[in-house]
């Protein structure tokens, strides 16, 4: 398969119709997701940092090291909380067409997942307590493959419900067991 625009090594080389890549999906997730992810990360760091700080206050002999460890956890959590959500927000996108669902996620490893509408088996929405506080919901689309689930992490919860309903309707049109 020799195609113009791809060099011998299969890489894209320069402009031309033959170089190909996946464009990002059209839609971002809900803007509030950034705040939600940030809160989640900060909480995840705050709990162990708090425990270490309390232990440090109580245990005299080990105080210095406990406080150092606590400060380390807090600093890492703060840095992650400030940096990662914005990054994830830039990457995490989704799109639904007549024929397929397309979701992109990831940090260092960017996963672009595509499932044809005709192979979708279930559509679930899901809200944890924290998501509820931010008015968000996640939509998970599964196919017959255990490794083929697509997850849109944060949509406005009403939007999520409507999307799920619409997907369910669209998938009902296809007969068969979608395997």
């Amino acid at each position: 398969m020799q195609v113009v625009g791809i060099d011998r090594e299969g890489r894209n080389r320069g402009p031309g119709p033959a170089g190909l890549r996946l464009r990002p999906p059209h839609h971002r997730v809900d803007r509030r997701a950034v705040a939600w992810w940030r809160t989640r990360l900060l909480l995840a760091a705050a709990v162990p940092a708090g425990v270490l700080a309390v232990l440090g206050a109580l245990l005299g002999p080990a105080r210095f090291w406990l406080l150092v460890a606590g400060a380390g956890v807090a600093a890492a959590g703060l840095a992650a909380g400030l940096g990662l959500p914005a990054w994830y927000y830039r990457v995490h996108r989704w799109e639904v067409t007549d024929d397929a669902v397309y979701v992109r996620t990831g940090y260092f490893w960017v996963d672009s997942r595509i499932a044809p509408m005709s192979r979708i088996q279930t559509v679930d929405t899901e809200r944890g307590p924290l998501q509820r506080a931010f008015g968000l919901a996640a939509v998970t689309v599964t196919t017959a493959s255990a490794k083929g689930a697509l997850r849109i992490e944060a949509l406005d919860h009403e939007e999520a419900a409507e999307l799920a309903e619409q997907l369910a309707l669209a998938t009902q049109k296809t007969p068969g067991d979608a395997t």
């Binding site: 996946l22 990831g106 260092f108 490893w109 960017v110 996963d111 672009s112 997942r113 595509i114 499932a115 044809p116 192979r119 196919t143 017959a144 493959s145 490794k147 083929g148 697509l150 979608a178 395997t179």
Partner: peptide, 9 residues
């Protein structure tokens, strides 16, 4: 039943 395209940095 679908594709996953993964790309690391």
């Amino acid at each position: 039943v679908g594709w996953t395209v993964r790309q690391s940095l």
